[in-house]
Amino acid sequence: MYLPKTLAIVDDHPIVIQGLQMLLINNKDIEVGGCFTTGAEFMSFLKEHKVDVVLLDVMLPDCNGLDLCKEIKLVSPETSVLALSNHSERSMVMQMLQNGASGYLLKNAAVEELLDCIYESLKGEVAFSKAVKEIIARPSANDLKGIPQLTRREKEILQLIAEGKTTAVMAKELFVSPLTIETHRRNLLQKFEVKNVALLIKVAGQQGLLQSL
């Protein structure tokens, strides 16, 4: 006997829930098992019921969809999570995928796109609406900027900054004046386009520069 797949909707906008239910009401392959306006309600349901796929809003009143996605995958690894959001930032899409989502759709996606994504995720594939595919294809600002070109001395100073050394200690170790160290420090902040040392270390680390020094 053929059993339809169970789908849950988690969104704090009743009109969105209603609209999705209407779209899926006559679909023989998918049965809406429950609709929830908070993450807590859905997690309680998930612990007691099998859910094949969940359409998850990224922003909920009681929690962040990014964290909730992680939680869902811990409780029920076989549940496919499809993010459904108005947020079109590339970083948000990538973060959802890192947290275990099976796909990402914008709320302005066409009905056919929504259904295609649901079916794809049920087959174990990663699914995106057309607009999200375009967002992913666009490189981020950091990707475009590339890695700053550093002199040998700047690399040395960057490493010492990462080790938490003070200007005075660096000047002593490198046999230069503290003023020279401060000039290099300013140049590094400029090259990485950051405002402080904490951000400098963070960005240099993200670009793999600290490991390679």
Rank of each mutant, 00 (worst) to 15 (best):
L115W: 07
V93A: 04
L66A: 02
S121V: 08
L188S: 03
D143E: 15
I161R: 13
I135Y: 07
E78K: 12
G19Q: 03
E41Y: 05
K47V: 10
V93Q: 04
E182H: 08
A127N: 11
E31R: 13
L56G: 01
V54T: 11
K155G: 13
T183E: 08
D52T: 09
H87Y: 15
L7P: 01
T183M: 10
G65T: 09
L23P: 07
C63Y: 02
I181F: 02
V169M: 08
V197L: 15
L23R: 11
A101S: 12
E78F: 06
N196I: 05
K195P: 00
I147V: 15
F192M: 10
L97Q: 04
L150Y: 12
C69V: 05
D29I: 01
L115Q: 05
L106M: 11
D29M: 11
V81K: 06
K130F: 04
M92D: 11
L199D: 15
E41L: 08
A101G: 03
T6C: 07
E120W: 06
V10M: 10
L115F: 13
D57Y: 02
T37S: 15
G33P: 03
L160R: 10
D29V: 02
K155V: 02
A40M: 12
V51K: 04
F42M: 06
G103M: 07
D116T: 11
L150D: 04
E113F: 00
P178Y: 00
D67F: 05
E154N: 05
L114C: 00
M96H: 08
A101R: 03
K47W: 04
Y2L: 13
A8T: 12
A101T: 07
M59T: 15
L213R: 09
A171V: 06
L189S: 03
D143W: 09
K130V: 05
D52Q: 06
L74E: 14
V75N: 05
S212A: 08
E173H: 12
V132R: 03
P178I: 00
S212D: 11
A40Q: 14
L150Q: 04
K28L: 12
M59K: 12
F192V: 10
F175M: 08
S85T: 15
K73G: 01
I135D: 09
T166A: 01
T38N: 11
F128E: 14
L200K: 08
V126Y: 03
L199W: 06
Q206W: 04
V176T: 12
K172C: 03
M1E: 09
L115A: 01
V126N: 00
K73E: 02
K155Y: 06
V111R: 12
H87R: 10
K107D: 07
L7S: 02
L46N: 02
K28T: 11
